[in-house]
Write a protein that binds this DNA or RNA. Structure first.
Lengths: 110, 110
DNA sequence: CATCAATTTCGATGATTAGCTAAATAGCGA
DNA sequence: TCGCTATTTAGCTAATCATCGAAATTGATG
């Protein structure tokens, strides 16, 4: 979870995630949205990959990056719950009474 | 919002916020929970203050730090909504249809 | 096989950051 | 005023980070 927070600490990476929310895009296509060099973007992708926030799919010489929303979701959820913040899943007030496949967090930080 | 994400990128600072969730504590009391020097903790407090995540109240020579939950909440909320993640307020599925006092975000990042 | 395109890896650099010790500031009580 | 306590500021170092250009990798195509 630390890796996730480190990853989203950077504005460029947050924007990459936001772009990927809609459709998965190639590394080059993503890079075109930012005023930095390809190698720099590649490094950002590596950080996001390391945090398991995105997934790479190589097709020929092209790499498609895809958002792993559940990982982002779990991190945000876990942290938020530490604070009683309503940051909830798609089902906030859990009507099942606790049959979550996500995880029950209480000290999942660090 | 960038400042908030930078602030919570550090595990020590996240833990400080978590400690502050219950009761407000003095700088020294907070410091006692970590294996680093007072000046280092003071620097962490400064970052959290800078991000407006905590508030300082000086009483004599002692400083009480208090969590500003709403700021954390807004940042988390705003970011999460960018992804359609349910990270919602205390009222997730907004039955009012959009009468929120928090803010309506759509490009609030960066 | 030679070349082109997409992307990453390498190696370097300047900026930021977390950490420390020592010193400064500020309030309080004798 | 002197000394004690709480906290921050100052000055420094080591590590991490974002960035770049050049080179390497990998796959496709003529």
């Amino acid at each position: 979870m630390n890796a996730v927070f480190k990853a989203i600490a950077d504005p460029t990476r947050r924007k990459v995630l936001a772009l990927l929310r809609q459709r998965s895009m190639t590394a080059g296509e993503l890079s075109d949205h930012f005023p930095v060099s390809r190698p720099t973007m590649s490094a950002h992708f590596a950080v996001l990959r390391e945090a398991d926030l995105i997934e790479a799919n190589k097709v020929g010489t092209t790499i498609f990056y895809q958002l792993k929303l559940s990982v982002l979701e779990d991190a945000l959820l876990g942290f938020s719950q530490l604070f009683g913040i309503g940051v909830a899943d798609h089902m906030t007030t859990d009507p099942t009474g606790g049959a979550r496949p996500k995880a029950t967090r209480e000290g999942a930080d660090e």
